[in-house]
């Protein structure tokens, strides 16, 4: 590669050329690398495809700003951390924190629906989907997770002309229009379209649609869905 990029001294380059002249294998390899290098250079000149643009700051800030209201704290180095833990007072504080955390964990478990397990979500009779954070519809406004699973009643199923995708308006309780979340299905492959009134569990990416006239939380795109009650 250094030779192809002109980064080899003339004497070394001549030696290489002399070898390549008499070695068919190296000659072929060099030709392949030259061709690949040229393809790479052409690729570099292409740039990102037209129409593929990164999101604006406001779009990502809507999702992450709420979690950054506290300034980030510098991480302690390992040595200092160990040193501070060895102090009796720090150990006592740590034990107290662990106990408090355990109590909070037990309390939050009691509040969670039965299908939630730690670090995973169990679909009824189906596979375990790892890495989706359970979020209630009412909690979307304070949610900071990206991959989420939520559960609710289908209030409305419609085709959104603006987004050119199928939308499901999901509510927490039947006949209660709020709180709600819009579940956007971009690819129907394998998904069952639920009927209004049915209870569903939806897996996907949590977003906030800040476009004028919208301003709602959504699961977009929906990656998996289970109909719990028809």
């Amino acid at each position: 590669m250094r030779y192809l990029e002109g980064g080899v001294a003339p004497r070394e380059a001549k030696r290489l050329e002399w070898h390549v002249g008499g070695c068919r294998e190296c000659d072929e390899l060099l030709a392949r690398l030259r061709s690949g290098h040229e393809a790479g250079r052409q690729f570099g000149r292409l740039g990102p495809e037209a129409g593929h643009r990164p999101p604006e700051f406001e779009e990502i800030w809507a999702g992450i700003g709420a979690t950054l209201d506290r300034p980030a704290r510098p991480v302690r180095t390992g040595g200092k951390l160990l040193q501070s833990l060895s102090a009796p007072l720090a150990v006592r504080i740590l034990i107290a924190l662990v106990l408090a955390q355990s109590v909070l964990l037990v309390v939050s478990f009691r509040k969670m629906p039965s299908w939630v397990t730690v670090g995973a979500v169990r679909t009824e009779g189906g596979p375990v989907l790892q890495g989706y954070a359970p979020v209630r519809i009412a909690e979307f406004s304070s949610n900071s997770e990206f991959r989420v699973v939520t559960e609710g009643f289908v209030e409305e199923v419609y085709f959104d002309e603006h987004e050119r995708s199928l939308h499901i308006r999901l509510v927490e309780a039947p006949h209660k229009p709020a709180p709600f979340v819009i579940c956007e299905i971009r690819d129907l492959g394998g998904l069952t379209i639920p009927r209004p009134g049915s209870r569903v569990r939806v897996y996907g990416t949590a977003r906030y649609d800040a476009q004028p006239g919208r301003g709602w939380h959504e699961v977009n795109p929906v990656l998996a869905m289970a109909v719990l009650k028809r």
């Binding site: 593929h52 990502i60 999702g63 992450i64 980030a72």
Partner: peptide
């Protein structure tokens, strides 16, 4: 995929902003 890339970009900046302290 552009939609997935947007998701990844969002996660990247989320993690970067959260970890600026380190």
């Amino acid at each position: 995929d552009p939609l997935q890339a947007q998701d990844v970009l969002q996660v990247v900046f989320f993690k970067a902003f959260r970890s600026l302290g380190s």
